[in-house]
């Protein structure tokens, strides 16, 4: 489909409790992504979201991806639990470059002081922090597990307070992305990135890239929960990006983010 190298910054392994997903082992995921010319992916473990002891997911994920250099594990942390710092430290020991948080599933908000504490600790450890705003469409959640999306209130303040920590919004839809652009009045912080799997509307990726800045957009698929063709078609077929823009979105931004990570704080 394309000669452009693609890094999928939002793929998943493991199981989601409310749907049987295929392609959720390393081999199967890589085979599925290869169909659309993706050969590298950042992966989280879906099971982590609903585990009570979220930290238990991290050695589990490390074991799953061992030997798969194409897969970069992203750990999971619930900072409302005691000794979450130990989970973060374990992620460092396991060689992870970043951690994901699911504030809506774990009962906190981005305006809570705990987010700042997590960012400070992640910065010290040289890790990026990924915030998943959704996991699945709230309109068809299980009736006993209806979880609203993460509000982005407080996020810009957190970015400003921790300018050397790269923050990735994953599963972010058009409305909160545009809200942040408006709230920032054209001056979005340099440490904030947006993963595009949930961008919608006709030509929506290009419109949002215009609002947010191409340099902040990370290619992601949310596979295997989503068809990975969705993001590929949105970016390569429906939009009309230039080759430099495609290179930035599909891999250069992700590579720059990773290159910026260093103990004591990244340098976005």
């Amino acid at each position: 489909m394309t000669d452009t190298a693609i890094i999928d910054c939002n793929a998943n392994l493991g199981n989601w409790p409310f749907r049987r997903t295929g392609y959720n082992t390393p081999d199967a995921l890589l085979e599925r992504l290869a169909r659309v010319d993706i050969d590298r992916a950042w992966v989280t473990l879906l099971d982590a979201v609903m585990l009570k002891n979220v930290g238990a997911a991290n050695p589990w994920l490390a074991e799953m991806v061992a030997g798969y250099e194409q897969l970069m594990p992203v750990g999971s942390v619930n900072p409302t639990w005691p000794a979450w710092e130990r989970d973060l430290a374990e992620c460092v020991d396991l060689g992870f470059r970043g951690v994901r948080v699911n504030p809506n599933y774990h009962g906190w908000t981005l305006a809570d002081p705990i987010f700042g504490e997590l960012l400070a600790a992640a910065g010290e450890a040289g890790m990026f922090v990924e915030v998943a705003l959704h996991m699945t469409d709230e309109r068809h959640h299980h009736p006993l597990v209806m979880v609203p999306p993460v509000a982005v209130d407080g996020l810009l303040d957190a970015c400003a307070a921790h300018p050397n920590v790269a923050i990735v919004l994953a599963n972010v839809k058009n409305a909160p992305a545009s809200q942040l652009a408006r709230d920032a009045d054209g001056e979005l912080p340099g440490n904030l990135y947006f993963e595009l799997s949930h961008f919608e509307s006709v030509g929506g990726v290009q419109a949002l890239a215009g609002e947010l800045g191409v340099e902040r957009i990370l290619f992601g698929t949310h596979a295997p929960y989503y068809y990975p063709e969705s993001s590929v078609l949105k970016v390569f077929e429906e939009c009309d990006f230039s080759e430099p823009e495609l290179a930035a979105i599909t891999h250069q931004n992700a590579e720059r983010l990773l290159a910026s990570l260093q103990a004591g704080g990244s340098q976005p």
């Binding site: 919608e200 509307s201 006709v202 030509g203 929506g204 990726v205 989503y226 068809y227 990975p228 063709e229 969705s230 590929v232 078609l233 949105k234 077929e237 429906e238």
Partner: peptide, 9 residues
């Protein structure tokens, strides 16, 4: 409201 692409996928 939706893209052609995400649904063609």
């Amino acid at each position: 409201g939706r893209s052609f692409a995400s649904q063609l996928a």
